[in-house]
Nucleic acid binder design. Sequence first.
RNA 1: GCCCGGGUGGCGAAAUUGGUAGACGCGCGAGACUUAAAAUUUCGUGACCGUAAGGUUAUGUGGGUUCGAUUCCCACCCCGGGCACCA
Length: 726
Amino acid sequence: MAREYNPKEIETKWQTEWEKSGIYQANNNSKKPKYYALVEFPYPSGVGIHLGHVRAYTAMDIIARKRWMEGFNVLYPIGWDSFGLPTENYAIKTGRQPAEITKENTDNFRAQLKRLGLSFDWSREIDTSNPKYYKWTQWIFLKFLEKGLAYKAKIPINWCPKCKIGLANEEVVDGGCERCGTSVEQKEKEQWMLAITKYAERLEKDLDSVDYPKRVKTQQKNWIGRSEGVLIKFDDVEIFTTRPDTIFGATFVVVNGKEDKFTGRFVTNPATKEKIPVWEAEYVMSDYGTGAIMGVPADDERDMIFAKKHNLAIIKEYQRAKFEDFGKRVVKYKLRDWVFSRQRYWGEPIPVIHCDKCGVVPVPEKDLPVELPKVDKYEPGPDGESPLANITEWVNVKCPNCNEQAKRETDVMPNWAGSSWYFLRYCDPFNDREFASLDKLKYWLDGDLPRHGGVDWYNGGMEHTVLHLLYSRFWNKFLYDLKLVPTSEPYKKRTSHGLILAEGGEKMSKSKGNVINPDTIAERFGADTLRLYEMFMGPFEQAIAWSEDALVGPRRFLEKVWRLQSKVSKGLTLKSETLMHQTIKKVSDDIESMGFNTAVSALMIYVNALDKQKEIFQKEFETLILLLAPFAPHITEELWASLGHKDSIHVQSWPTYDLKKLVKDEVNLAVQVDGKVRANLLVTRSQSEEEIRINVLALSEVQKWLGGKNPKKIIMIPGKIVSIVT
RNA sequence: GCCCGGGUGGCGAAAUUGGUAGACGCGCGAGACUUAAAAUUUCGUGACCGUAAGGUUAUGUGGGUUCGAUUCCCACCCCGGGCACCA
């Protein structure tokens, strides 16, 4: 009697074994071709990993494992994006140090991820809130400052007048402060900015050279919002338009304002020489173009609505102008510069010093990192400054230039900073002289092919396809211009996974109490079942609702695979040879296109066929578990060992298929009469079209539906369908 | 409001370039095994009419193109993601 399938026992056993042997460690000096597979590193929140992490990390794990089996030297790293607001808020609530909370959370995350049997190279773990890491985040900021791309500007922030604190958009609920409900005001504040708009053109253009899904490219393009137009002067009001050809139809001018109102002024339309009114309205954006537009109601839907609402003139027929008749061609972008300051504690301190004499002085490189001091209280400064402003012994320093009394900058960076370059650090995670050595970056990012270089495959959430992706492309391009990284684009290929929703289709959230802990599931069903289920549950790119009931399907499947081993015998004749080759092809192709649900389904079909056989030959069974290994690494390792193999299944070669053995000789042809299937006909590959045509017309069902009439037309699609039109 | 996706049985879904809609799995029904239950296993399972053979109908709604539409086009409805200080 064979042993029962006991996932808990074998999963712990093999996880320990793999950790000991270090089989997933990337090699910096390998003769094999390299492969860099990347997933978005998690924000280590207090609630632990969620099902979405399992989905994304398992998917990339399958790809990484397949690459190992295909003979690549794989880098599949992981780390922690650990600065951020929730940890700071939790620290305020509990009176504990954010660093201490982060340590607890990352320890928990690490243990949870390890229990899933992911093939991460844990020897390269990084953490954005570790001073050894953020030293380099600060260093990169100083480069931005040095090149004039970091600057200060007055920007309105959300301000709670009662708490005297700047609020994140997320902390504003229905226009009020999340904590006290007081109406939020806009307050102008000096903020550090990064000039991402200087890179707008390249960020847009270079999308052509990368392999991103179309919808991701479209999202990025729309966000950058490139438009070609002209600047035209209506007297002293300069407008921007992408449709200068419609200028003869312009009956009013609109500038940005809080509410719709007539300014009382008139300006001259340079085309018609008519005097037209200047209005204010909210629909015209102050920070796009010149903040003023010409209103052409006949050609623009929004202008039409505005004209009708306020009884403005509408000219329906007018002369078309040439593009540059009345102004000069310019390119404008919707993209705005990046507000890089946060008046918070738990982020990278911005490494500059303010000196009355010298102005803004960068912290010298030898003094990096500017470490976060420990604090006891997180109250903001009197004018809404960061809590750091209250720590006088930290704030007061000598100016590195003139040695006079000076003050540290107390703003910290946004959470996006650390994640804008982390993929570079993985290539050389413990370097203390540079953020990463160019040699190592060249090896892992294909330095010789700048147009095609970068991380080989980067998967992450749909919710990051605009901001994080754009920010990290920007940082990479900046570093590329300084010749510090080898490729102009950071990621060769990007894919995105869909969200996992709660049962019933709602978003999972702590407040709704519908969050499912992957640990509980792994405990009850096994990590292999959880992995397999998340791959099987639906299309990877789409949002999907969790269903606990459906979990038993993959579990039963694994038990069936487990039972098959008792029927394995040595033998040469393969009973399911065609199906075996089809399965190899289907699973191999589907993994590449992230069609994991159909890959699992193909494995199920193969297993069902093997299950019906009296005996299974070793090659049929080994092919099965090799194909299954990336999905369910523990059970397949155990079965592989049970067959008597001494080395791991995860270092074996990926199965290959024989093209000649993929197709059967006979095909079932559907026969349609007037668009409806009325009969079927079995044909062989050697039969001619004419022969098939005669056989089809001789079918009794076809005769019946023709009712004695002659067909007008017969359309033949080889191997698929014959369509008869009467 | 703006930008990007999606809508197919009781449920999750599949369907190559426009070519037999519903693979695979869950659930459900009937049978086998069992003292019984669980597990396993066999068969069935979109809806409607019919004892059956068979027929009709069906991919969010309405229209169009086509021998043929889940797939292409137009209009509408509903759901999800993002909107720059959540990560």
